[in-house]
Amino acid sequence: MSAIKKHLDTLSRLAVLIVMFVLLVLVSPSFGTLTNILNVLRVSSLTLIIATGIALCMLVSGIDLSPGATIALTSILFGRYFQMGHSTGEMVFGIAGILAVSAVIGAANGFCVAKLSLPPFLATYGIQQIVRGLAYLLTNGLVYSGFTEQFKFIGGGSILGIHTPIIFAAILLIIVGFLLNKTTLGRRIYAVGSNRESARYSGINVTGTLMMSYILSGLIAGFAGIVYTSRLNCAEPTIGAEFAQQAIAAAAIGGISFKGGHGNVFGIIIGALMLTLITNGMTLLGIDSDWQVGATGVIIILAVLIDRNTAKKKV
C-alpha cells in the first residue's frame, strides 16, 4: 500500500497518459500502429534528452534556459571543425570535443549560479545569449551540411527497427536514473533541492552539487546537439530556439517541481510523451502549428498550478 502511495503522483500521470493515448487511437485508429508509436517515441526522444538535463537543474531548484543555444553552438562546431574527419576515430574525437565544450558551457552556468549566486533563469539566459552569439560568430553565414554516413547513423539510423535517438534517450535515462537513485550525488541533488540551508548544515558540498547539476545539464545538451545535428544532417546557428521551453514544459507536466527536490526520471518520460501526444492530438484536430508552439506556454502554467509540490497556497 505504501509503495502505491509513494508512487501515486507518477501513477496518476501514467493514467492520464494512457487515457490520452486511448483517446487519440479512438479518434484516429492508425495512431495505434507500431510504426506510429515508434514515430511518437522518436519525436519525443529529443525533448526527453533535453528535459533530463533541465530536470537535473530543476531538482536543485534551478533552471537551465541555455540548452537550445548549446545545441546550436555544438552543431556549428561539429559542422565547422569536426566533420573533416572521415574515419570513425576522427568522428569520436570530434564528439569528445563537442561534449567537452558543452561541459564548459554547463560549468559557466554552474559558476554563475553556485559561485556568483545569480538567479538561475538570469544566469542561464545570459550564458544562452553568449553561446548563441558565438554560434553566429563561428558560422560565417554558412550552413554546414553533408556529414559522413557514420555520423548520420547517430541520429537517423535504426537498430532492429528502433530509431537510434530512442535508444540513446533510453540509455541516458537509465544512467541518470541510476545517478539520482543509487549514488551519493543523486541524494545530494535531492537534499540541496529540498532545503539548501539544511543540506549545507548537514555537511553537503552545496556549491559542488549545484556545479555538477549544471555541468551535467550542459553535457546532456551537447549530447542532444550531436543527435539533432546528425538527424538534421546540417548545422545552423538558428536551431533549437524552442527546445528549452518544450523541455521545461515536458519536465513540468512530468512532475519535476520548480521548487526543487521533487520528481524522478519516470516523470520526465511521461511528461515528454504527454507533450508529444498533445502536439499530435492538435495536429489530428487540424490545429495550426502556430498554436502548437503556444500550447507549451499554457502547459507550463497549468502543470505548475496543478502540481501540489510547487503550488502551495499562501497562508
Partner: peptide
C-alpha cells in the same frame, strides 16, 4: 498574487502564450 510559484516560470509560460497569439 495567490500562490508562491516562482514568478519567472509563470511569466515565461505567459510569454509563450503572448508570442503565439501575436504570431497567429
Amino acid at each position: 498574487s495567490r500562490t508562491n510559484i516562482p514568478s519567472f516560470i509563470i511569466t515565461l509560460g505567459n510569454f509563450k502564450i503572448c508570442e503565439t497569439l501575436s504570431r497567429v
